[in-house]
Computed example of a mutant assay.
Amino acid sequence: MQYTVGCTLEYAVPSPSVFVFNVAASNTVFQTVEYETLRFSPDLPVDGWVEPETGARYHRVDVQGPHLSLHYEATVTLEPTVRDPALIAPIPPADIPLQDLFYVVPSRYCQSDQLMRLAYREFGRAPRTFEQPRRIAEWIHANVDYLVGTTTPLTSAFDIATSRAGVCRDFAHLGIAFCRALNIPARFVSCYAYDLWPRDFHAVFEAKLGDRWYLFDPTRQASPGGFVRIGAGRDAADVSFASIFGPARMTHMAVHAEAGDAESDRAPKEWKEFAVSSA
């Protein structure tokens, strides 16, 4: 399936500022960037780096002012593995790969150690298979209200468990924290989402079961079959679409994601109840 995705970001830059952007689609086993363009105005030197484990791509520019605009456009082919959840094998803590322990411990926005009692009370009796993270995603969808403007960049998973309101970023953080409290490796995923409305960058989480990472969207606003992956990390701090060092402020943002063929237009909606592996 093929999608065209992209964004336009504009900033006022009253004095010199450094920007690090993470908006480019990743190249992974299940996702191929067929074509892309990344333009800055004014035209500036760009430093680039690809995180080797997740494929997240970062671009840094040093801006003297008074403004900056970024335009990114890509055509991406997705070939995710779709599996029947009943066929996914559990992974006991003793067998978690050592490189994945990084995604079991608490992080800045995902205080799994503070949510352990709640996690075990709500999900501890579920089979230690795909069913556990699936129940976590469903619980968040049922118990947390999706309300724009109720949280800030400082809001954590513990805050959301208390306030029970937030946006996709917060839903993902809470899902990650619950998974980690149950010793399931989990990480934050930023993406373009084909069937998300209104258009925006989207955040979901993925959990490691067996030898694969599986996607979950507690907001239920989009389907994993239409997620074009940007980056993955411990939480939102690792894959913010823009990190700014200086007094710059955003003045405009537009995000888009369109189907590139008839198959792409149909398939995502058919996958909401399946296990989708994209990493």
Rank of each mutant, 00 (worst) to 15 (best):
L44I: 09
Q64P: 03
V76M: 09
P42L: 08
L44S: 10
T8G: 02
D47M: 08
N22H: 09
A86Y: 09
S69V: 14
A24N: 00
V5I: 15
S41F: 12
P93Y: 08
A25Y: 00
V46G: 08
C7D: 02
L38R: 09
V5A: 03
F19W: 06
L78C: 12
S26R: 08
N22V: 09
A24M: 03
S41I: 11
L87T: 15
H71W: 06
S41E: 15
H71G: 06
V13R: 04
P80C: 05
S26Y: 00
G48M: 08
T37V: 14
L78G: 02
P14L: 05
G6V: 00
P14D: 04
M1G: 12
Y3S: 04
V63Q: 02
E36Y: 13
F19L: 05
L87Y: 07
S17Y: 03
E36A: 14
P85T: 07
T8K: 08
V13W: 01
R60I: 05
N27V: 13
T32G: 04
E10M: 12
T77E: 08
Q31F: 09
F19V: 04
E36D: 15
R57L: 03
P52M: 04
D47I: 08
P42K: 08
T32S: 11
R83I: 05
S26F: 01
R60A: 13
E73K: 05
P92S: 05
S26L: 00
H67F: 15
T77V: 10
I88L: 07
H67A: 15
E73T: 08
A86S: 15
A56D: 02
D84M: 02
S41T: 15
Y3E: 05
E10N: 14
I88N: 01
V50T: 15
S15H: 12
R60K: 14
P90G: 01
V50C: 13
Q31Y: 03
P14M: 02
W49T: 09
T77I: 06
Y3A: 04
